[in-house]
Design a protein around this nucleic acid. Structure first.
Lengths: 340, 340
DNA sequence: CTGTTAGCGCGTTCAT
DNA sequence: ATGAACGCGCTAACAG
């Protein structure tokens, strides 16, 4: 493989001139620059990244640190879309992406900071980490730029950002959707209690109830940790003693669990019981019935995270927290009680 | 961040001794080794990968070159599982994973060989590439170890391997499953014609027909390029003129397309028409009806690909082509015609 | 067993 | 505008 030396020799100049030609320096003759570029092309030269990484002050690689990939149900492809988005964003600016994935098992295996140092990482995108994760805090305390996905810290640090949809508003819209259609006995299948998105969505739902002057049913809030199985169990138990007209779920996956329990109870969706979900994972459009749910553009979330991080790294950003659009998609899992 | 120099200084030895201590060399005093390791620990030292990469002959990073990620339907999570498997395998041997993704658009943007050279990559896993891709051939022609997923070259090269299920046998099992249950008018929804897996599966299906002494319906073979939409279109057209008792599909995604056409034609699955698929993507278990399909363990395929590649890189392998188990999962989309 | 030296491929001063 | 020299952090020969 051709090195910078080969190009220099071929061009009859020193390596430093070649380096300057390649890196768009000003103090170089235009003709020699073109000549060098041409020779580099001919020799099929591309700079070795390890060499560049070592000598350059510029950090060219971005880290993705995620527990979302291995901690989720096989049907949950959200993290997949996020990664694609991140890759796309990083790729657009010709940077490298280094990936660090873990599950709860090896959560404590290696410090994220260490991961970043080892690779000369210039900034990291954090996805699915627990806020009480010590390594998470450690990383936030370094001056390595970070962007959190689906989580917003109070940290006023200039180099920490976040990307998410407006979960609160989305929660309010869900409640409004149900309430407007006459539902009054609503059970809430929430996610993991301490989680940022869960807190936001729940607040939003409460706001929705307030606007409609309906008492919020505190006792009808179930926490299923975003798990399909757990949602199934909880719904089954709940249905044994109650008969709500609707379940408001904080993820489509939990809707599937609930739907199973509903079906087993001999009830029909949406005739006997309505269901509204969150995420709009691809299959929610073809379930029976198709799901009414809040659509999240995970690809865009990932892409925006990459863009924000790169902006922070370049010290060229106006806002540390970007909000991606969401949309409540109305399909066929919610019945309008006013019509019957 | 602590460098090897800091450790050396602290330990009162030269850097080379530290290097040897860290890399398990023999010719080093056990006590000093332990002392160095302890100090490294205290200083929270971890070697910089760029430095190591540059000086070491050993290649520590593996490349994943895939067009499968961006070329597929959102419902298709096969490539996601493959990546998880690869990551897991690579991680187990403490190597790095560098990822190169492309879609058909930027297919020609950058040479895979170049990608590998730039990063001092020791071996690459290839997924979803077209066999007529010039960069694919170029890479195979270097002496960089390669493992193909779902594709087997004739190349007898020692450093080229492959991982896949036994697609031929799987195809035969599918045909057998249908034929045994009395189906005689079977349409085949095949994938992309020139594709390796497609060819293998088709051969297998033909073998199945032969074993049952049933003429293979050449004219009933449709090629839908593994696309849900295309399968829908083709099935719709086909159903306008024919009424087979079953569709044998080379992917679950295509089953979904066919199912849509079937439903629109006013037919019921499996009562009026049986469906058998391939892949067993997560949602095929909860469709209506649940799908009978050939289960592929994509995670394991990815993991085996990583393992095989690392074995080839260590020059410690006995077989260049590994076959991962598959299983025909019987659910409810195939009707037994003998019973009626 | 340890230290010295060289070099991996590149970016970056600082002279010239 | 160009080149010489240095260093990034590390491994690898080789000498002692």
């Amino acid at each position: 493989m051709a090195t910078i030396k080969d190009v220099a020799k071929q061009a009859g100049v020193s390596v430093s001139v070649v380096s300057k030609a390649l890196n768009d320096y000003e103090d170089i003759n235009d003709k020699t620059k073109k000549r060098i570029l041409k020779i580099a092309e001919e020799l099929n030269y591309t700079p070795n990244l390890a060499g560049r990484n070592l000598s350059s002050k510029k950090r060219m690689t971005i880290g993705l640190i995620s527990s979302a990939v291995f901690n989720t149900n096989k049907k949950d492809t959200n993290a997949y879309e996020v990664i694609k988005g991140i890759y796309t964003g990083v790729d657009e600016e010709q940077l490298e992406l280094a990936i660090f994935l873990m599950d709860s098992q090896k959560q404590k295996q290696k410090s994220y900071t260490q991961f970043c140092r080892e690779r000369n990482i210039g900034g990291a995108i954090l996805h699915g980490l627990r806020t009480d994760d010590p390594y998470f805090k450690e990383l936030l305390d370094t001056n390595i730029p970070c962007v959190n996905i689906d989580f917003r810290t109070d940290s006023q640090a200039e180099n920490v950002g976040s990307v998410a949809i407006d979960n609160k508003t989305a929660g309010e819209e869900m409640a409004d959707h149900l309430l407007t259609r006459g539902h009054r006995d609503i059970a809430i299948m929430a996610g993991t209690e301490e989680t940022f998105v869960n807190i936001e969505r729940l607040q939003g739902v409460k706001q929705g109830f307030e606007k409609h002057n309906v008492d919020f049913p505190e006792s009808a809030v179930l926490y299923a940790d975003f798990s399909e199985e757990k949602a199934y169990e909880l719904a089954k138990d709940y249905l044994a003693e109650h008969r709500p007209t609707a379940f408001l779920c904080f993820s489509d996956l939990m809707v599937y669990g609930v739907m199973k329990a509903v079906t087993e109870a001999g009830l029909k969706v949406p005739d006997d019981l309505s269901l509204i979900g969150f995420d709009d994972i691809p299959f929610s459009a073809i379930t029976h019935p198709p799901l009414t749910t809040v659509h999240q553009d995970f690809f865009e979330i990932g892409r925006q995270a990459a863009k924000l991080l790169m902006d922070i790294m370049k010290d060229y950003h106006f806002e540390n927290h970007v909000v991606v659009d969401h949309e409540l998609i109305e399909r066929e899992s919610v019945k309008d009680l006013n019509e019957s």
